[in-house]
Design a protein around this nucleic acid. Structure first.
Lengths: 344, 344
DNA sequence: CTGTTAGCGCGTTCAA
DNA sequence: TTGAACGCGCTAACAG
């Protein structure tokens, strides 16, 4: 069997089928939607014509006529290639599927312009709702208007000044607990890998980090702040920090990208045969296999798929119950896991 | 700013805007599509009405009228949560974006029934083309008919008896080279982690594996065949195999899932303080951080994103050039990388 | 420059 | 049980 069946210049319509079957378009329509009030014999003729022509009914036209929604839900993330966001998407898909919706996936690549385009496009496609991981510092408010009435759920990051349904991770609490773990293990010089001036998520994680340190009477030290936004940058920063005198004994990693980079540098350092103990790390998000590296690790982990599910639930609640009052915020909890630390 | 603006019972239409602006629907339409032949002054009135009503033009209706395609491309994979497929999706998205198309992402979960539903649904949504990673042994042929004319590109796996555009990885060649690497390192007892009776991909990788072994005069040994389809199963199999007498000195891992599981078991074994050398592994697909584990590794790696791109290119070629003759097959090359082996 | 007419593919409504 | 007419939201084509 070959899939090259020539795509007709224009797809067959009800009329084409009707003509071939020798009935009226209406009879075809009825047959396609279950066949109530159509003689079985006629139905068969219609079916034959349908198969002969390869007819599929045009859902767009159908929906317009019925005034029905599109059954499409948009999800725009900063990077689908990142396993974290692909898990989020998986969670959304799972819930959406239960509601008979399909998901339109867009990738912003952290680019606000691309995000703008994407939102406009999605809106034009009449999506019923949008789940968004805002790029950068968040879309400017005026652009949120593009959605004009389409329910929006923010996932993982907030947008300053925008009051929408949101699913967040317990960033502050998680970061505080993870940092506390490092403190408990005796670490005092802990470097922060991430850009506190960047996205809201990092800001909150930094807040938790600082809060724990402050609780231990440790002040801010700019030299231990390593702004980085990719695995490569993180690797470079850690390598640099491990080279300076009085280098940190532990690191706080903001996300799975910085974690991967940092682990590369740490393993390299360890394998370099240093006599100092292997630097420890508290890292947000899970990274597969990281627990096998024999690097002292405190993972502040949560389930991104669950985050996606919660976001989808929030969206469908809104879609169903119309007005449930003001915006809601859901938090996904963070669990602390230890590997290769004294506490383990 | 709050996103709760009550979704009107029915979305505003051109007519609503026209009425409010005191013009005809046509003027609104023209304004919306660039405003040629509309006085600036009138355009402003229209824009005001648009914003007041939160009007967005209905793309479905628009496309029906224009007889235009939907601008939607479907991509159905077995698991978006798997970083491998999320990279594939990313590649597709990138190319599709360049053609002004959005991607509809579906997850089959390796379930042929779900795949069937998905395809039917996608077809009903008038997608312009479909990129499919077939579930299990592939959808039965009759169901491919559901696509009736919608161009199809198979990615990563084939379907027996279905002759469609396809992007494959050089499974046989890659597997042969990887296995040869293990042989070069002196390994003679190599276990195969995967189900050769399963999907086409695994079958081809097994073929390459066997081919290399046969070249070295090593016959088939059922005891070294460990059918497994998940990380957990692979972990169990490896643990079991490392426990038997005359256990394998190396493993061939079929994909990133089996690799992750196997690495867990291998590290556990090594850390158990065995005096035997650390088992080696040749593994298909990349797994982040695996190269840091100090396990002798031969990676048969390729870029899944590139695979997605190629699939998309094949699709858009087909969409543009209509008939380019018979189905085409593209192969993505495999590179061999060594870590912690003698050869490195 | 602007409005009117007509029709995209479909399905509800009502008549036959 | 079947068909004709009408309309969904939108826009080409043609007036004016």
């Amino acid at each position: 069997m070959t899939m090259q069946s020539s795509p007709r210049s224009s797809a067959p319509t009800v009329r084409d089928v009707a003509a071939l079957a020798g009935v009226s378009p209406m009879t075809v329509s009825r047959t396609m939607s279950g066949g109530v009030n159509v003689r079985p014999e006629v139905q068969e003729r219609v079916q034959a014509a349908v198969e002969a022509l390869g007819y599929r009914r045009n859902n767009s036209a159908r929906n317009t006529r019925l005034g029905r929604p599109t059954g499409l839900v948009g999800i725009a993330v900063t990077n689908i290639g990142n396993p974290y966001y692909s898990q989020v998407a998986l969670g959304v898909e799972e819930i959406a599927g239960g509601y008979g919706r399909q998901i339109l996936v867009g990738n912003t690549g952290e680019d606000p312009n691309r995000e703008r385009e994407l939102i406009a496009d999605f809106a034009g496609r009449q999506i019923e709702g949008l789940i968004l991981v805002p790029a950068g510092n968040g879309l400017e408010l005026p652009d949120a208007r593009k959605l004009s009435g389409i329910p929006l759920v923010l996932a993982s990051r907030t947008i300053d000044g925008l009051d929408a349904d949101t699913v967040l991770v317990d960033d502050v609490g998680g970061a505080r607990a993870g940092t506390q773990g490092l403190l408990d293990d005796g670490h005092r010089r802990i470097a922060f890998l991430g850009d506190p001036a960047g996205i809201s998520t990092t800001r909150r994680r930094y807040e938790g980090f600082r809060s724990a340190l402050a609780g231990a009477g440790i002040g801010e030290d700019k030299r231990l702040l390593a702004p980085c936004r990719s695995a490569r940058e993180a690797e470079g920063e850690v390598r640099r920090l491990l080279g300076v005198s009085n280098s940190p004994t532990a690191f706080f990693s903001t996300n799975n990208r910085t974690t991967v980079g940092a682990l590369r540098a740490i393993c390299e350092y360890r394998n370099g045969g240093s006599s100092r103990p292997v630097p420890a790390m508290a890292c947000f998000d899970d990274v597969e296999l990281a627990d096998l590296l024999q690097v002292p690790l405190i993972m502040m982990s949560h389930d991104p798929k669950e985050l996606g599910k919660q976001a989808a639930r929030l969206l469908f609640d809104r879609l169903a119950g119309s007005q449930l009052g003001g915006p809601r915020e859901v938090q996904v909890g963070v669990e602390i896991h230890r590997f290769w630390t004294d506490g383990n």
